[in-house]
């Protein structure tokens, strides 16, 4: 098993670019995410041999092939389970799970929730384009009701699921949302996620230019973004609008928008480190068009990861274990035949 070198390795973006040609459609939002990950990794001080990307199936899951790190392109929905195995064996690795709305929330929902519940030390980045891209355009678990797709020509009937709500429901210790068109926030959030101990879940609003172009248009369009995006900043009131003139406050048990809020005092203040998940869940329920969409870090709390606890148990048991294998095999009741 490897050890982390004390000095910070001097990498550039190029050190993380593999020799494989990127095969996403021209204009796909995935390019921007790939670029930002490759930008961020050299700044983190991690050794590249310790970086592992694990993915499932879908357009997003081709991601590991484009990273010059260790990588495992798994099977549909199972990336968190594969990553769990890697995590159990080696505590020094930086594990990034790359998944999509179909991969994580449909076929892989079980593993997604359980990885988060265990707070396994890994980053989970979910590319949410609200459509099945690789299978050519069927509705996904995040597709809005009524949306017409190849498999829903009269409009989707399923009520969509919101991944951040699910993650917080599973007590995720780090939850964030970013947008493929917003490189600066991506870099900031990816860096913060990388430093988190436990499962860091990041939903990326990602545009599928072929099958669902403009799914996040109300925020990916730079002109509309200030009206519809709520940037979360720790210790600051929840404000949005071109000049941050509007805010969010609580009215009894309901959030309401305060248009042209002059006074910060009545607004909610962003506290991502609140121990209870109730506040983060409340944030996750702010949906467009009734509310602006929160971006940034929803929740960031400390909680021991499963893998660290297991490792501790194994090391303690090994310290206590004075007998060798021969003793174990003999057990309390052996007998000898001469």
């Amino acid at each position: 098993m490897s050890t982390t070198a004390p000095e910070k390795p001097a990498y550039t973006r190029k050190d993380f670019v593999s020799d494989q040609a990127v095969r996403w459609c021209p204009g796909c939002g995935d390019y921007a995410i790939l670029a930002q990950i490759q930008n961020v990794l050299p700044t983190l001080g991690v050794r590249k041999e310790n970086v592992v990307f694990v993915s499932g199936i879908g357009c997003s899951s081709r991601f590991p092939y484009y990273m010059d790190t260790y990588g495992f392109h798994g099977i549909h929905g199972r990336a968190p389970a594969i990553a769990t195995g890697v995590r159990l064996v080696n505590p020094d690795l930086d594990i990034w799970v790359i998944t999509g709305d179909g991969d994580a929330l449909s076929i892989g929902m079980g593993h997604f929730v359980h990885a988060i519940r265990r707070n396994l030390n890994m980053k989970v980045i979910l590319f949410n384009n609200r459509i099945y891209g690789l299978t050519k355009g069927q509705y996904s678990p995040t597709t809005p009701v009524g949306h017409k797709t190849k498999s829903s020509p009269l409009g989707a009937l399923d009520y969509p699921i919101h991944p951040i709500e699910v993650a917080i429901g599973a007590e995720a210790t780090f939850v964030a949302r970013v947008l493929d068109a917003d490189g600066a926030t991506m870099r900031k959030v990816f860096s913060e996620a990388a430093a988190h101990r436990g499962t860091a879940f990041i939903e990326v609003y990602q545009n599928c230019i072929i099958f669902n172009d403009g799914a996040h248009g109300h925020v990916s369009d730079k002109k509309q973004r200030p009206e519809h995006a709520l940037y979360l900043e720790e210790g600051k009131p929840l404000r949005f609008g071109p000049n941050k003139e509007h805010g969010i406050k609580m009215d009894k048990t309901r959030p309401v928008i305060v248009w042209n809020a002059e006074n910060d005092d009545e607004l909610l203040v962003h506290e991502p480190q609140t121990a209870s998940a109730t506040y983060a869940y409340f944030l996750s329920r702010l949906h467009y068009p009734e509310f602006p969409i929160p971006f940034g870090v929803f929740r960031k709390v400390e909680h021991p990861p499963y893998d660290a606890l297991l490792r501790e148990r194994v090391s303690q048991a090994r310290e206590r274990n004075k007998g060798g294998l021969a003793e174990l095999f003999r057990g309390p009741h052996s007998w000898t035949v001469e």
């Binding site: 798994g74 769990t84 195995g85 159990l88 690795l93």
Partner: peptide, 14 residues
């Protein structure tokens, strides 16, 4: 499925 995939990940991890 998770048990199998975790074993696969563990094999890959060493």
């Amino acid at each position: 499925i998770a048990a199998m995939c975790t074993a696969i990940g563990a094999a890959y991890g060493g």
